[in-house]
């Protein structure tokens, strides 16, 4: 009952009065909850510590600057290792993630009752665990080093690539697939001619996007022994060598900016 007649003229409201009241109650409850949560959150905060936070920050800042530029000589190799961990990990993830995506997509899976749930389980399992946790587990299994990092990156990325790619596969135009089927093509040929050309741009976008994320993630894997620049970061933090930490931050920042630029270029080229 949206339109209301009053004094012989028709008044239109977006919602009926009752719905309006319910909505108001909802927003009010949300605001109350927010206030309550803030109180719980700050119960143990010692406000006097917060008062001189800006002094502490300035103090840390002064110890971090200027960056220790000479330290760069010790960073080239770990940086190279970090890039390799990210790239090889991404390749490995593509190798396994693409088949998993085709097994999970409703329109390409051989069986929706058996194969699809299994593929979905792999995707969810892979996605639910962060790379750094995977690295922790792997370091204790296969020992510290770049290999553990590569596999950790791959295990986390399989789910990411699998999920985004299978969603892209499910959204393809079925008419093009039908046309290829109608020529008498085999299932494998339908995949290559009818489906793959349609998902290739999505595949390129997803892969470089994940590579881009993996570069950022591989910078911290060293903290748990997964190899790469994170090892230097941890060593510098342990001895409170703040100017070295600053330089590592700058190097990571620059690497991420460059990888971001590369992935934007690749995505643009494939549309």
């Amino acid at each position: 009952m949206r339109a209301v007649e009053r004094n012989e003229s028709v008044i239109w409201r977006r919602r009926a009065p009752k719905a309006e009241l319910v909505r108001f109650a909802g927003w009010f409850a949300l605001a109350t909850l927010t206030v309550f949560c803030f109180q719980v959150m700050t119960r143990d905060t010692v406000w006097s510590f917060l008062l001189d936070a800006h002094i502490q920050a300035a103090d840390l800042g002064s110890r971090m600057f200027p960056p220790n530029w000479g330290y760069i000589d010790k960073l080239w190799w770990p940086l190279w290792e970090t890039l390799n961990i990210a790239t090889l990990g991404t390749f490995l993830a593509i190798l396994f993630g693409v088949p998993v995506a085709f097994l999970a997509a409703r329109n390409t899976t051989p069986s929706t009752t058996f194969v699809r749930p299994v593929a979905m389980f792999f995707i969810v399992a892979s996605r639910s665990i962060n790379s750094i946790i995977w690295a922790l587990v792997l370091v204790s299994i296969i020992g510290p080093g770049a290999l553990a990092g590569i596999i950790a990156i791959a295990l986390r990325s399989i789910g990411f690539i699998g999920k985004l790619l299978y969603e892209a596969i499910e959204e393809i135009d079925t008419a093009q697939v039908e046309a290829i089927r109608a020529t008498g093509a085999s299932r494998a040929q339908v995949l290559v001619y009818g489906i793959w050309p349609q998902v290739r741009p999505a595949f390129a976008g997803i892969s470089v996007f994940r590579w881009d994320i993996n570069i950022r993630e591989s910078t911290v894997l060293g903290l748990v022994g997964g190899g790469g620049i994170g090892l230097q970061l941890q060593a510098s933090l342990n001895v409170l060598a703040w100017p070295q930490v600053t330089l590592i931050f700058l190097v990571i920042l620059l690497t991420v900016v460059i990888s971001e630029w590369v992935s934007a270029k690749v995505r643009h080229a494939y549309i």
Binding site: A175, Q176, A182, T183, G184, A185
Partner: peptide
Amino acid sequence: RQRMGMIFQEYALVERLTVMENVLSGQLG
């Protein structure tokens, strides 16, 4: 199916393949 050629309403070409690839796809069987 090889013995039956089909022509579609919205053309149903594989949009990202070239004209030649689309024509050759008729011989996939």
